[in-house]
Write a protein that binds this DNA or RNA. Structure first.
Lengths: 243, 243
DNA sequence: ACCTTATGACAACACCGTTGACCTGTTAAG
DNA sequence: CTTAACAGGTCAACGGTGTTGTCATAAGGT
């Protein structure tokens, strides 16, 4: 039964659920997001979502072909929410930094959706808008086209990849997350200097650092490198604009 | 029943399964890896793994506390295989570059396993050795401890994150991968300059760039930034060693 | 007011991870 | 060489999951 899903435009009979809820794709996506935020990523199952909506689980299959389909819709909503309020200021590095942090934060807020969508090109409105914005920032900064694309690609992939990586961490069941912290504290924190001198020497820093995301640091390194690169390009072409 | 798992050293009675297989942690991990590669990440379940091994699913719980435990072992095995033949040369940047590319290649070689395991801290032998090696390279290069840890963290996460991102791409079903390329060629390749000037101006480069991984570029930017950082640190401390 | 049919509900299917109880072959001690 | 302990494989069950075939009914056009 593959034609169970009806395109939203063609939907006409708005019959309420037994419990009196009128379903819609938007309501389902919104409830899914709420469920994830309130009770963690593993709280999202078709059955629980149905329960939260006040509908039979199978009713959702009138709106989404399967769970992946639903998660992609959630992801799309996510892009929109993350970048809705972003505006370029003219300082290209600051703009990119802001964008990167927003994308990363958006991913962290909705881990399951992020891990699912990080590696997919949707070609939908929000995504196109983001691509255009980033390329604009880079070209206005003075990067020649080929270089702008190279930097754009690395920038976006880095944001997506770290977003997925870090949100996978937060999506772990609570027990597993605590186990990870424990591993750093006990296993790595107690290796003897004779066998593992470098870990032993930096154990204190390691334990502290591993509790937080390395994305801000990685992003800043990235921007620093891009700034240097731009300087080289300008020197070569005799352009002396400040950066 | 939490004391079901017996440490491998203490294991003595090697009783074969009904189907004549003698189990071991190594055999289980190896079979899991094979299963994932051959039939996709979804093919890995305790029950299927048991069937593939010729043992009752519950027998695996004598070797691993739960599925997560098993996945960590698989992840560690993956790290071990990727870095087995790496040797430091003394040129820290070249060494890191080599390491990063190996980790990335290792992830690509086992895409489905990589996507499952990239974000976990295993605390096992191979991982510990990798941490020690990377920290060693950085500290010998002259990075002070706090900085070495910061750079280590960003470096490792970048390699893992891009590894996961890129292998998620290659792990997609063929049809989905072709659809993605199609999106770039048609959707992005044909946006009019009036509405999307930056995409239109760089479309040619975009289509070409998106076909390949951005990790090498990102890695080189990372190393360039680290080199600059090291230079600043040396200038500040009056150290004039060459880089 | 009637008919069509979209849409929600129900029940069932085939899986999943995990555990407690059981059974038996291996091994070490006598 | 026998025997008793127990490690380790097996079985059955629990409560969960996504998904689908079928049915009932209320909404909306006529």
């Amino acid at each position: 039964m593959s034609d169970r899903v009806v395109p939203p435009a063609a939907r006409q009979r708005r019959r309420p659920t037994k419990q009196g809820v009128v379903l819609s794709a938007e309501l389902i996506v919104g409830t899914a997001l709420r469920l994830i935020e309130e009770h963690g990523a593993d709280a999202l199952s078709v059955r629980r979502l149905g329960r939260a909506l006040g509908a039979d689980p199978s009713a959702l299959y009138r709106y989404f072909r399967h769970t992946d389909d639903l998660m992609l819709a959630v992801a799309d909503e996510l892009i929109g929410r993350s970048l809705r309020s972003w505006r370029p200021t003219g300082d290209w590095a600051a703009d990119l930094r802001d964008l990167g942090l927003r994308m990363h934060a958006g991913a962290l807020a909705h881990p399951r959706a992020a891990t699912l969508s990080a590696h997919r090109v949707t070609g939908r409105a929000h995504e196109i808008q983001a691509v255009e914005s980033i390329l604009g920032v880079l070209r206005r900064a003075g990067f020649p086209d080929a270089e702008a694309v190279r930097i754009y690609h690395a920038f976006v992939d880095q944001a997506l990849a770290f977003g997925a990586l870090d949100s996978a961490g937060t999506a772990l069941p609570r027990a597993a997350r605590e186990a990870e912290a424990e591993v750093w504290r006990t296993t790595y924190g107690r290796l003897p200097a004779e066998t593992h001198p470098h870990i032993a020497a930096t154990a204190r820093h390691l334990v502290a650092s591993m509790r937080t995301s390395s994305y801000p640091a990685a992003l800043d390194l990235f921007l620093a490198a891009a700034r240097t690169r731009l300087g080289q390009l300008r020197a070569r072409t005799g352009d002396a604009r400040p950066h």
